[in-house]
Amino acid sequence: MLILFFIQLMLVLIFLLIGWAILQKEAYGLISSFRSRPKEEQEELIQNGLPQKTGKLLILTALVLLILLPLLFTPFPYALEVQIGVMVVMLLGGIIYLSKYEIPQKRKKSYIISISVAVVTFGILMVVFYLGFQEPELTLNENSFEISGVYGDQWNYEEITQVELLEEMPEVLIRTNGYGMQSISKGHFKVKDFGNSLLFIYKDHSPYLLVKTNDDTIFINSKDAEKTKDWYHQLVEQSGKVELY
């Protein structure tokens, strides 16, 4: 949690610093493509107020993110998602709004580009969040079990070396490739005492099912504790591998 806090705090400081430099020091070269514009266009954009309003947009975004930072330390399960969503909406919406201060002959093109970028970005984010929040299902087949969804796979029962039900999730040290949200972890992570692991877990929803195979260490659970326990008992029955619970 502290890592997320400091990352977002650093982002806030970067936005504040760039916005301040643009507004107070007239560092307009910090704005994308401004430096490459002809001198006449630069002067017209300054007269229209586009650089100044860009600086204000960054500062306003930073202040809103700063206000939302304490959400990370509340029980609200989607604090990080809300913060990301607000930041994206403010920045992309702001870019679209700033198109009205473009020079007249480039204004239409600016609207088309900024709206297109916003639509594509929102589309990608919606897909990412949808896939990330899909509840994984553990299905037992005749000779194997499989986990559905992103990062899911299939393993033969004969590969299993250990099945254990844990009341507490071991400390997750770092995400290497996956979704690491405040309420869910899905994908490849490093876990204390277990090393590289494949996670499909809802945080603060014990118990957690640990399955070790010849090649993988898997942690999975459901929001429904009884469902997780059912997975455990079924896997024990199928594999014959068990740790006392």
Rank of each mutant, 00 (worst) to 15 (best):
L173W: 00
G132K: 00
Q134R: 12
N156E: 14
Q134E: 13
G152Y: 04
N156T: 12
E171N: 10
I184A: 03
R175K: 14
N141F: 05
I174G: 01
E146L: 01
G180S: 14
K192G: 04
E164H: 13
N141T: 13
S183D: 10
E164L: 05
F145G: 11
V191K: 06
F133R: 14
E135A: 05
N156V: 02
S148Y: 03
V150Y: 09
E164V: 01
I174F: 04
P136V: 00
E146N: 12
E164F: 07
K190C: 01
F129I: 08
L125Y: 04
V172G: 12
N156H: 12
S185T: 13
P136H: 09
M126I: 06
E159H: 04
S185Y: 13
S183M: 13
T176W: 00
H188C: 08
D193R: 10
E142D: 14
K192L: 02
Q162C: 05
V127R: 08
V172E: 12
G180Q: 08
E171T: 13
L125T: 01
G132I: 04
N141K: 14
E159N: 11
S148T: 12
V191L: 04
M126Q: 08
Q162M: 10
V150N: 10
F129N: 07
R175H: 01
E142W: 00
Q154Y: 10
E164P: 02
E146S: 15
E158K: 11
K192R: 12
G178D: 08
G180I: 02
V172W: 05
S185H: 15
Y130T: 07
T139W: 00
V127D: 01
E158I: 05
S144P: 10
E171W: 03
L165C: 03
Y130D: 04
E142G: 02
Q134M: 12
S183G: 08
E167L: 01
T161F: 06
F189N: 07
L173K: 15
T176M: 04
Q182G: 06
V127A: 13
L165P: 02
I174P: 11
L138K: 00
Y157V: 04
E158Y: 11
G123I: 03
R175F: 04
L131Y: 06
N177M: 08
G187Q: 09
I160W: 04
F129D: 07
S185G: 07
D193V: 05
S144V: 06
S183A: 13
L165F: 06
Q182C: 06
E164S: 14
S185A: 15
E158F: 09
F189H: 10
D153R: 15
N143S: 15
G187W: 08
G132C: 02
E142Q: 13
Q154V: 11
G149V: 04
T139R: 09
M169A: 07
T176K: 09
E135L: 01
V172C: 03
N143C: 10
Y179A: 10
F133N: 15
L138V: 13
E159L: 02
Q182M: 12
E137L: 11
G132S: 06
Q154L: 14
E142L: 06
E171S: 11
T139N: 13
V172F: 07
S144N: 14
S148R: 05
V163Y: 08
E142R: 03
I147D: 04
